[in-house]
């Protein structure tokens, strides 16, 4: 390879980047789940309702979700700048990346939630209905526990997707490992920092996937 020199690396900068990535990831994952889980449940319920009015709610929600999912993330960040400023006060830095990350990932997660829920055996839901369970009880005591392995798999996929989204947050000065890799490797041809940043991202993704798989396995009863 020739000319790879790791001695000049500013480890402090890398440590800051790791911390920034984890902050962005943690905060955006939490809000993505908080928003995406109910949205997924609503999508699931609305798609199965026999009422025509509720079905039209599904059509509208589904359309919005599809739009948000089709806008490229980098464009979403820029387009959201005014809204981001409204919500968190700034449109840059770690804080400024969180609203676009959540808006980008929550619809994606909601779709995965909807899919996991629709895999729950229809007969079990019916049995609960027959026992006089309310819709709320069916959600909390049947749908969510039965779909648990699928929901953990969905969370794993979503959080890993968020890792790659955080890399693009450099555009609004978000910082983090991905930003580091792009700034050093792509703009300055300093491969060393880029390699280290990418390796760290790979390790992070591997760790997340393993943890997710473990949870899925732990809760699978079939």
């Amino acid at each position: 390879m020739g000319g790879l020199d790791f001695s000049l690396i500013d480890w402090k900068e890398i440590a800051t980047a790791i911390l920034d990535t984890l902050k962005m990831l943690g905060a955006s994952a939490i809000f993505t789940i908080i928003l995406g889980l109910p949205l997924g449940i609503i999508l699931y319920l609305a798609s199965r309702s026999s009422s025509r009015r509720v079905n039209s709610v599904y059509v509208v929600l589904s359309f919005v979700v599809n739009i948000l999912r089709s806008v490229p993330f980098i464009i979403l960040i820029v387009a959201m700048i005014p809204i981001t400023r409204e919500i968190v006060g700034v449109s840059f830095g770690v804080l400024g990346t969180i609203p676009p990350l959540v808006v980008g990932a929550a619809p994606f997660f909601a779709r995965l939630v909807e899919t996991s829920l629709s895999e729950v055996d229809r007969g079990v839901i019916e049995a609960a209905e027959g026992m006089g369970a309310s819709t709320q009880q069916i959600i909390l005591r049947v749908l969510l526990p039965e779909a648990r392995p699928g929901l953990f798999a969905a969370m794993t996929i979503t959080i890993i997707t968020l890792v790659s989204y955080t890399a693009m947050s450099g555009q609004v000065g978000g910082g983090g490992l991905g930003d580091l890799a792009i700034r050093y490797g792509y703009f300055r041809y300093e491969k060393e920092v880029m390699i280290i940043a990418v390796v760290l991202i790979v390790i992070l993704v591997q760790f997340l996937q393993m943890a997710g798989d473990r949870l899925v396995r732990h809760f699978t009863r079939k």
Binding site: D121, G123, V124, E126, M131, P145, E146, R221, K222
Partner: peptide
């Protein structure tokens, strides 16, 4: 009104 089913419909979790 209790009900039982051909495919049992138990909570697998």
């Amino acid at each position: 009104i209790g009900m039982i089913f051909q495919h049992f419909n138990l909570l697998s979790s």
